[in-house]
Design a protein around this nucleic acid. Sequence first.
DNA 1: GTCAGACTTTGACCCAGATCAAACCCGGAC
DNA 2: GTCCGGGTTTGATCTGGGTCAAAGTCTGAC
Lengths: 247, 247
Amino acid sequence: MNHAAQNITQECADCPIRHRAVCARCEPDELTRLEEIKYYRHYDAGSHILWSGDRMEFVASVVSGIATLTQTMEDGRTQMVGLLLPSDFVGRPGRDTSPYDVVATTDIVMCCFRKRPFEQMMERTPHIAHRLLEMTLDELDAAREWMLVLGRKTAREKIASLLTIIARRDASLNLRAPKGVLVFDLPLTREAMADYLGLTLETVSRQISALKRDGVIELEGKRHVTVRDFARLLEEAGDDNDGGMLA
Amino acid sequence: MNHAAQNITQECADCPIRHRAVCARCEPDELTRLEEIKYYRHYDAGSHILWSGDRMEFVASVVSGIATLTQTMEDGRTQMVGLLLPSDFVGRPGRDTSPYDVVATTDIVMCCFRKRPFEQMMERTPHIAHRLLEMTLDELDAAREWMLVLGRKTAREKIASLLTIIARRDASLNLRAPKGVLVFDLPLTREAMADYLGLTLETVSRQISALKRDGVIELEGKRHVTVRDFARLLEEAGDDNDGGMLA
DNA sequence: GTCAGACTTTGACCCAGATCAAACCCGGAC
DNA sequence: GTCCGGGTTTGATCTGGGTCAAAGTCTGAC
């Protein structure tokens, strides 16, 4: 488990969903109601949280650890369609089954709410429904952004785009690094990255080596990354906007 | 404008959103309120309905014609991230600007609702908010399904997947064809298909020719398609489920 | 009818990324 | 310490789809 994730665990110890997932504007009594129906689940690295087609009996937010959403074809080709980092929300009120495999990439703790009571609460408190719509729209935007990556970017741009995403996520939690320099651990194996990017693991490895050789990133071991010039990384990603990271 | 689209125009003449977009369960008085704030817009083929970053002052459903959602990189590479067919909904309550270009592919008629009154109505009638969440989840699923297509499928599978989608859409409207045989017009140029599939227009053309040569589809002119064996097409698409098309 | 322009097809060639194969690295079990 | 196995890197080669180029088709204006 990486350092940033541990932070989240602590930050969210009393009420994980307060963090970013559901309750940005919760009144105290609503928080209390959420407290009453919540419980925790732990999964080991590598285990399936949900299989595609499984009945989903809960919605949840990630407390610590990493999970992925993947789709798989009969012949085994797989595509990752989402990455769940601490504070992310999983599950869809109003739907019975999961359309994807949800797999724990690291040991992971989820803060769960049984679906029925959660849905009932949604009906009572419209702003939670509103917040959920907003989160779904964010996910939709992210998915469509990723369609551009998958459909039109080169292998090098794809890697840079992924690093960008992970860096942004981690950096918003990890404020220790001096401004402009981002330090983080890759939460995924080369193979998982490949499945996210529509590449092979060999190509991922080669492109990471190339970015290192060209001074875009520094690597310590196989997972620990330092980015000294985030603007440069964005350029490599073929990204025109900075998502608010650069003042 | 193709025949199916004309059908929709007639079906929806009195209240387009009643069709499938927003109002599946509307009470009569809610329909009346919607009637009061709706108006129509016409766009010519090829014109921009919204530019990326534009302020959106309305939400709308497509009455007739086709539009696309696209993202473009600075160097001109473009990726289509959504296809708007008759009865589809555009616009996101709670968001101010469009993250995508919305372009009319054919002449198109939209049934629009000014955003503010629409949002107010959403607050008054929770089931519309609920329906909107559902539609957004559908879009999210479609986007993620498409990520698998973009990331992991071959050119031939991509083309077959696109035909599958268009055939399903059109077939649900066009009940004249004998069971099992689907007949429809391609609503997109080869270039637009390429932008949807993350290919070049030459590759699209070659793969369509190949599917024709192999008897998967029949072509009359450049746009009119007959599919005699839908299961075969699904197989070519690498798709395991039939989305309920085959009994 | 015929001309212009937009769309499409087809061919020849090339290259980014896949595939196949072999080492390498490193942490944990013993 | 040594061994083992999963993850990673690197090299050699192959190929699907991109690129460049030319020709074909259709439609609508005149």
